[in-house]
């Protein structure tokens, strides 16, 4: 019996020791903690924005709604027949970020047809008075890349229109020419 009593006391003593040890461990691992947070820049990001500009400096985003022009009464001649009408338009990058811009010309006929004159139209493109494409079709125009943009400094695009001299499809002549000019850029 006496052995059993001593055993319980030893157990209590061990338990007390354990509690003391736990308290000691808790103190040992206590530490100060500091947390500090700062912002890197007010915000980061950016914008890439190209737009059209008229002669008065007015800006037209033309996106998503396109800017419409109606040149009714303007006739597009076959090459060499008479002076070719010219579409003049200014393109500008408004953001600090710039990059190459491409020009895509597409058929804008609300009732498109294979006889639409656009497929027989030749385009002569000048940028700021410098000839960059001479009587090329719309697919070749799309191969062009316009570089060296400065923010808020527009470039003037002059696009002269003419029709091919030989057009096999008799339905082409006399049809209205519907054009969509799409300037698209990519930040770089």
């Amino acid at each position: 019996m006496s052995i059993g009593v001593r055993g319980r006391n030893r157990a209590r003593a061990l338990l007390a020791t354990g509690l003391l040890a736990a308290a000691f461990v808790a103190v040992t691992f206590g530490a100060y903690v500091d947390v500090y947070q700062v912002r890197i820049g007010t915000q980061v990001g950016g914008a890439y924005d190209i737009a059209l500009m008229d002669d008065n400096g007015n800006i037209y985003q033309a996106n998503p709604a396109p800017l419409g022009y109606n040149h009714a009464g303007t006739y597009v001649p076959q090459v060499g027949q008479w002076a070719e009408p010219v579409i003049s338009i200014k393109v500008v990058t408004l953001s600090e970020v710039t990059g190459p811009i491409r020009l895509t010309i597409t058929d804008n006929n609300p009732a498109p047809s294979n006889s639409d004159p656009i497929y027989y139209t030749l385009f002569t493109v000048s940028v700021d008075g410098v000839l960059v494409a001479d009587h090329v079709d719309m697919h070749q125009v799309q191969m062009l890349e316009f570089n060296d943009w400065t923010p808020n400094q527009p470039k003037q695009f002059d696009i002269a229109l003419s029709l091919q001299t030989y057009i096999a499809d008799p339905q082409v002549l006399g049809r209205a020419l519907f054009l969509a000019l799409i300037f698209s850029g990519e930040s770089q």
Partner: peptide, 17 residues
Amino acid sequence: QHSGLARVLLRLEATTV
């Protein structure tokens, strides 16, 4: 997209040793 923004936060956490 034509633009985008974010705020960047640097967090420092220290524990005494």
